[in-house]
Amino acid sequence: MTETPPRKIRVALVFGGRSGEHAISAATAGGVMKAIDTDVYDVLPVGITREGRWVLASGDASRWQLSAGNLPEVTADSGREIASLSEAGPVDVVFPLLHGPYGEDGTIQGLLELAGVRYVGAGVLASAVGMDKHYMKLVFAGHGLAVGPYVVVRPGDWERRQSEVVDRIQAELDFPVFVKPARAGSSLGVTRVDDVTGLADAIEEARFHDPKVLVEQGLQGREIECAVLGGRQGGPPRASVPGEIVVDHGAASFYDFEAKYLSDSQARTEAPADLPDDVAERVREVAVQAFEAIGGEGLSRVDVFVARDGEVVVNEINTMPGFTPISMYSKMWEASGLSYTELVDELIQLALERPLGLR
Rank of each mutant, 00 (worst) to 15 (best):
A252I: 01
S300H: 05
G156C: 05
S327L: 08
F178E: 01
I36Q: 01
P325W: 01
G231Y: 12
G250K: 06
P181I: 01
L125W: 04
G218A: 06
A122V: 02
D174S: 14
Q109D: 00
I348E: 08
I9H: 05
G116C: 12
R282L: 09
P321Q: 06
D274Q: 13
G298F: 07
S240Y: 03
D42F: 03
L98N: 04
G295Y: 09
A293N: 10
P276F: 02
G189H: 05
T319H: 02
A335T: 02
R118D: 00
V283L: 09
A26N: 10
R222H: 04
V196Q: 12
D60T: 13
E113C: 04
A251L: 15
K180I: 03
E113S: 10
N70V: 08
S19W: 05
G310R: 00
V55L: 02
F305R: 05
A146V: 14
L188N: 05
V14R: 11
T2R: 14
A141N: 14
E244C: 11
D167G: 12
P155Y: 02
E81K: 08
K133R: 08
Y255H: 14
Y102T: 00
R284Q: 15
S327E: 07
G357C: 07
A206G: 09
A76L: 15
I348D: 10
S78T: 12
A202Q: 01
A35R: 07
T28N: 07
R308V: 06
A128S: 13
E342W: 06
A128Y: 00
G52P: 07
D309G: 00
R7L: 14
V153T: 03
Q349K: 13
H143C: 10
I294R: 02
V283I: 12
G110A: 12
D157R: 11
I348C: 06
D256P: 05
K8E: 08
S265C: 09
P211E: 01
Q349M: 06
R207Q: 11
P237H: 14
R63A: 15
Q266R: 15
L98Y: 01
E81V: 12
P272I: 08
A200P: 02
R161M: 03
T2D: 13
V228R: 08
V196G: 06
P211H: 04
Y135M: 13
S86T: 13
D278P: 06
D256T: 07
A239C: 05
E292K: 11
A267C: 10
A287E: 02
